[in-house]
Amino acid sequence: MTTRLRVLDDGAWISVDDHREVRVSELWRLDTDEFCGCDLADLVVENFQTVGVDGPTVEVRVYGQCIACGASGTTGWIPVGRIRDGSFAALDRSAIRRPRPEMNQ
């Protein structure tokens, strides 16, 4: 079964099978030292750069800003949900997200 993933409205939404599922302006907690120096970054998602999959996991790269320290930039691949039985299941908004380690660094 094929799942269609797209970035819509100039990076404001992630569409899964032509349904808007994930939007910008959310606050995500990131457990990474690659974005900023905070133990847990409080990232305001400002723009989706791209969307992809890693197995059943739907991932995005986003541009955002940490509200704790002010750092801004583009993240690595961050999970936003999973495809289960052909349907999208979003991660809980309060979940601590861990970007996938980048290969060949």
Rank of each mutant, 00 (worst) to 15 (best):
M1K: 10
R4W: 02
L5P: 07
L5W: 10
R6Y: 07
R6P: 02
R6M: 11
D9N: 09
G11P: 09
W13V: 05
I14M: 08
I14S: 07
S15H: 07
V16I: 14
D17W: 05
D18G: 08
D18E: 14
R20M: 05
E21I: 08
E21H: 11
E21M: 15
R23T: 12
R23M: 14
S25V: 10
S25P: 01
L27F: 07
W28S: 11
L30W: 00
D31H: 09
D33N: 11
C36S: 10
L40N: 04
L40Q: 10
A41P: 05
A41K: 01
A41R: 04
D42A: 07
D42R: 09
L43A: 04
V45I: 15
V45S: 08
N47M: 13
N47K: 15
F48S: 00
F48H: 00
Q49S: 04
T50C: 03
G52M: 04
V53L: 14
V53H: 07
V53N: 11
D54S: 15
T57K: 09
E59K: 15
E59Q: 15
V60T: 10
C66P: 06
C66V: 14
I67V: 13
I67F: 01
I67M: 06
A68D: 15
A68R: 13
C69Y: 01
A71E: 12
T74M: 09
W77P: 00
I78K: 02
R82M: 00
R82T: 03
R82V: 03
D85Q: 15
G86M: 14
G86N: 11
F88N: 13
L91G: 05
L91N: 10
S94L: 13
S94I: 13
S94Y: 11
A95N: 06
I96F: 04
R98N: 01
R98K: 09
P99Y: 01
R100I: 08
P101E: 06
E102I: 08
N104P: 06
